[in-house]
Amino acid sequence: MDSVATDVAIQFRNVAYELSGGRELLHDVNLEIYRGETLVLLGRSGSGKTTTLKLVNRLLSPTSGDVLVNGRSVRDWNVIRLRRMIGYVIQDIGLFPHYTVERNIGLVPRIENWPAHKVHQRVLELLALVGLDSGLASRYPRELSGGQRQRVGVARALGADPPFLLMDEPFGALDPITRAELQKELAALQARLKKTVVFVTHDLHEALLLATRIVLLEEGRIVAIQSPQEFLSSKDPLTSAYVAAFGAGDCWKPERGAS
């Protein structure tokens, strides 16, 4: 498994993204994301985190430079194939209100033409994986609590077992207790599943808990790429400003045996 650690899964090459009005949201982004790691994009609002994320599943296309997934430019991928191997979780969740939990989670397997019993089996498997009772399968999203909905969102993203997972502030709208619970569960889940995860957040605690590496973005530029340990001890002014803002230097204790 050691050789896998340096296998590049997603690569940003001199990527810029500009709005049609000429405002540049991303500037010369170079980034390699390794297979199986959880890369956290950290930064304040408007720093370009979400833009970076959407370039991976081509919800946005770079105005210059290139994004490579599995060594192939996203431009050359069939966009539907590309997206179906990338699970996507967003803060507003975007569950389909007219579908039951089961249909929401089973959507991608279903449109991938899995046989019905396999889809059903997969749904039950995923409900268990995200810690939800199988009795919830027939409920509608509006009948769930915020935390349950977000779990369904994660389960749906994992539907067809995609090797990649993009998460855009998935826990941002949750209360602190539920959020902490879901963060821990995600960390445990990821330790088992070893997906390539790109996670967007502005919450340093969340970043420190989940990240293999943290990418700090500021005004569309990458300021630093560091491990959580390096991030905390960094002398870089922007990084230490972020750490100071969260008072994280004192309270964060490494929980995982990161080597």
Binding site: N57, L59, V79, I80, R81, L82, R83, R84, I86, G87, Y88, I90, D92, I93, G94, L95, F96, P97, L107, V108, I111, R156, A157, G159, L166
Partner: peptide, 18 residues
């Protein structure tokens, strides 16, 4: 239709028709 729902659907790889 809620923008987040459409965005999520696109991100999941639904075709325009789906």
């Amino acid at each position: 239709v809620d923008h987040a729902i459409v965005e999520a659907a696109r991100g999941m790889g639904l075709t325009d028709r789906q």
